[in-house]
Amino acid sequence: MENLISIFLNSVFVGNILLAYFLGMCSFLAISRKMETAIGLGLAVTFVLSITTPVNWLVYHYLLSPGALAWAGFPRVDLSFLKFIIFIAVIAAIVQALEMIIDRYLPPLYIALGVFLPLIAVNCAILGASLFMVERNYNFIESVVFGASSGFGWMLAIVTMAGIRKKLRYANVPKGLENFGISMIITGLMAMAFMLFSGITL
């Protein structure tokens, strides 16, 4: 249990997937102009990450990792080099399926998240979380917690950024620094603030 809490705190604050590992920057910069869209995309990313990370864990451990095919009679096959292409296919398929399921059974949620779902398939935070899950040797439960809390951390960062950008409209930014430049510097300052949490030990 303690282990799970520490994974949660670590992936929300200290090792925030956006501010410490720079994943999902493109949509972070493009979508953080308005508060409502930022919240919508944040929720969608959290939702997709909490599903794709455990599913990719199952795929990796029962199909791809060295010796994983022992149940099918191929104990010496190592397919782990295929993980990039399989993971991205799994993510694209899940996103597509989710879009259809939500559209059919949960129309209000579809109105809130629908526009963002197709964008998510190529968000590097999603693929990145699956690859980190392999690299850090999480077990199944840990991968569920890791996926959900990384998504939550990403959402926290994009919503904060949307808030700051709202205020930024009234600021007098130097000409060449407008938009992209100033967003990067603000993100840097946010990353510094999040690093302060690294003092927390459980």
Binding site: L19, A20, Y21, F22, P174, K175, G176, L177, F180, G181, I182, S183, M184, I185, T187, G188, L189, A191, M192, M195
Partner: peptide
């Protein structure tokens, strides 16, 4: 070396590049 340094370095390089190329 840390993450914030990267963000700020890119921000400053973009500023420089935009000012020069104008």
């Amino acid at each position: 070396v840390l993450a914030p340094g990267a963000f700020i370095a890119i921000g400053l390089i973009v500023w420089l590049q935009k000012t020069v190329s104008k």
